[in-house]
Design a protein around this nucleic acid. Sequence first.
DNA 1: GTCTATATCGAGATAGAC
DNA 2: GTCTATCTCGATATAGAC
Lengths: 195, 195
Amino acid sequence: MARTQGSHSDITGPRIQTAALKLFAQHGYAAVSMRQIAAQVGVQAGALYNYIPDKQTLLFRLMQDHMETLLDTRRRQAGQGDPEARLRDFVRFHIRFHLERPDAVFIAYMELRNLTPENFARIEELRGNYERDLENILRDGSAAEVFSVPDTKLATLGVIAMLNGVNTWYRSGGRLSLDEVEAVYWSMVRKAVAA
Amino acid sequence: MARTQGSHSDITGPRIQTAALKLFAQHGYAAVSMRQIAAQVGVQAGALYNYIPDKQTLLFRLMQDHMETLLDTRRRQAGQGDPEARLRDFVRFHIRFHLERPDAVFIAYMELRNLTPENFARIEELRGNYERDLENILRDGSAAEVFSVPDTKLATLGVIAMLNGVNTWYRSGGRLSLDEVEAVYWSMVRKAVAA
DNA sequence: GTCTATATCGAGATAGAC
DNA sequence: GTCTATCTCGATATAGAC
């Protein structure tokens, strides 16, 4: 029988994360109230505080989970081979991973300024780890003279910025398939860093 | 003599815009109160409403002013010549213009979702005008076979995304001068679209 | 673990005196 | 044109019953 009260600890926790992710991405962290999140989950606002100490921690955990999933997934999938193959692999991975979770990506990007300084520093450290991955590929390729970039750090930031742009316009079912998008961006990245 | 009351219509209007620009960029539109803006200006909150009908209109005007300044400045400075010269000119202009006003750029990018649908559509139209400028350069260059891009529209978005990234890390007095940054990005863009 | 009720606070916007 | 005072609303977070 349906009940409107009772214990749901197993499902309420994840549902809070999911609801907050969606609402923060849609309206922004500061514009979303705890009441809205609770309504989306189907509980009263007070019940949220059984799962999170406060709103700030909720935001931080969303961003931390996202960044750690990014790093873990990348670590497991990262290919070997020559620098060009590794770069191609990175481009493909980055586009695909980010297109699969647009809400989390959007939040991890747009809500940095709503983190406390301590939380901000922790997220930035994770982001730095990810960027170093690409930077190493570009440095190895430059050393092997298969790439020629005027500045390894700027090339890293430039490539990531270009790839991040995909999330702002791509919609599945649009003019281009995911494979086509990957091919187009790989073509531009490859040429941009080519010797 | 100093006075704490009286008429200041000539200066209060611009000061509201300046204060709002700074505060919105720093904390986000939704997180900034009208009282904060008023305090920065040096008036009481009620006085703001002699200049703006509401907070939403204040945000919209900031973004509209920014986009129209972008389009006007570009129109006056746009160079002629072959597609490669025009592309180089665009890259240089884009980086320089955007680095000169980081707060306005940040807001025009991050606060789109806080606009009403009508205001959003008007800003997006202005942004489309700017993107078409670059798109025409890439199309002309492809037709002349000095460029080779797999998809003109995606190349446009890719280049702009890459260039926008500069604003996230550049600080004057840092490792690279503005001229060096322009040279590095021009090198990457040129190669990315080269035939 | 969730509920209802509430404490405390600050938001956007307006009214009317000066 | 700016002030003070205030209306109305909703925010985060907590307390205690069930």
